[in-house]
Simulated assay, not measured.
Amino acid sequence: MTGTAGRVALVTGASSGIGAATARVLAERGMRVAVNYLSSGKAAEEVVADIEAAGGQAMAVQADVREVRAVENMVEQVRAAWGGVDVLVHNALIPYAVKSFQDMTWDELGGKLDAEMHAAFAVTKAVLPAMAAQRWGRIVYLGTGLSRRPREGMIALGTSKAALEQFARYLAQELGPQGITVNIVSPGPVESRTADAVFDDATKQRQVAATPLGRLAHPADVAQAVAFYAAEDNSFMTGTTAAVNGGMAMY
């Protein structure tokens, strides 16, 4: 991809996993990257150090993306250093319960829905004025294949991400005339510490067996799709969803 040099990207939840991989790829492509984290400051600084060692520019920025004031302060910190945010990658994972609907409380389901949408609302509101003023922007939300293909115990995550994906389509329609694209990257199962904590080996083997490409996604696979949407020359795709799942689900 060309023409991304100097653009400012904010990646939420970027101290590990998909977020860290995305921060590294965007930096490789010439963007200055703000690496957001909640509590893993040391890990975020390591991502920044990796980017700088490779010749890129990055800074770590702490904020709980569920808190409006914290998000506003974070975006102001980035603006003071580099100017407005050109590219938003909203990847931060809001905690959720893994259980059946019958065992779930409203606080567990409704709380996840509320926190998911509140975070997306807050970070988008904070970066939008600069994008609208320059009539250029890229917004990428991380979804999940579970929003279309249910799996046992994942109702809280799947339902909240389905809401996020529809929110993204409405934004794509509204913001298109201002030169701002809004897209979704929807990973299938990803090899990560989070996945290891949730799924046992038998489950992972079943997932691999159901994947034509014969493995689970790596964070870098997802990061490449995000970078595609974030690129300067990808100017005519908006309101779309990229499924990064090795063919496990085709739609």
Score class of each variant (00 low, 15 high):
Ser186Asn: 12
Arg151Trp: 07
Ala34Asp: 00
Ala126Phe: 09
Leu113Tyr: 01
Tyr229Ala: 08
Leu175Gly: 07
Ala225Thr: 13
Gln134Met: 14
Gln166Tyr: 01
Trp82Arg: 12
Val11Tyr: 07
Ala44Tyr: 10
Val190Phe: 11
Asp50Trp: 09
Ala217Pro: 02
Gln224Phe: 06
Gln62Cys: 15
Glu45Leu: 15
Val47Ile: 13
Ala120His: 03
Arg169Ser: 02
Lys204His: 05
Val78Ala: 06
Arg24Val: 12
Gly55Glu: 10
Ala23Arg: 01
Arg32Thr: 04
Ala132His: 12
Glu108Trp: 09
Glu76Tyr: 00
Val182Asn: 07
Pro95Ser: 15
Ile51Ala: 12
Ala223Thr: 04
Met1Asp: 14
Glu72Leu: 04
Gln57Leu: 14
Trp82Met: 11
Val48Gln: 11
Asn36Leu: 00
Gly137Val: 13
Val61Cys: 14
Gly143Tyr: 11
Thr159Asn: 01
Ala70Asp: 09
Asp107Val: 05
Glu174Met: 04
Glu232Leu: 06
Arg79Phe: 02
Gly56Ala: 13
Ala163Ser: 07
Gly137Cys: 14
Ile18Trp: 03
Val190His: 10
Met117Trp: 01
Thr240Asp: 14
Glu45Cys: 07
Asn183Ile: 08
Gly158Ser: 10
Lys161Thr: 05
Pro177Ala: 06
Asp201Phe: 00
Ser39Asn: 10
Thr238Gly: 04
Ser160Ile: 04
Gly19Phe: 03
Glu46Thr: 11
Trp136Tyr: 15
Thr2Glu: 13
Gly239Arg: 08
Ala92Met: 13
Ile184Gln: 05
Arg169Gly: 01
Phe101Trp: 14
Gln224Val: 03
Ala162Tyr: 03
Pro95Asp: 15
Gly239Tyr: 08
Leu10His: 07
Val98Gln: 15
Gln178Pro: 01
Val208Ala: 05
Pro219Gly: 03
Ala119Ile: 02
Leu213Cys: 00
Glu116Gln: 12
Gly158Tyr: 05
Glu72Met: 01
Glu232Met: 11
Ala168Val: 03
Pro187Arg: 06
Asp201Gly: 02
Arg215Val: 07
Asn36Ser: 00
Ser160Leu: 05
Ile155Pro: 00
Ala242Lys: 03
Thr159Ile: 01
Glu46Tyr: 02
Leu109Tyr: 08
Ala58Glu: 08
Ile94Trp: 06
Pro129Leu: 12
Gln166Lys: 03
Val222Cys: 05
Ile51Cys: 13
Ile184Val: 15
Thr4Asp: 15
Gln166Ile: 04
Ala243Thr: 09
Asp200Gln: 06
Val61Thr: 13
Arg215Glu: 06
Met237His: 13
Met248Val: 06
Val226Ala: 08
Tyr251Ala: 12
Gly153Thr: 08
Glu108Asn: 09
Ala63His: 09
Lys125Gly: 07
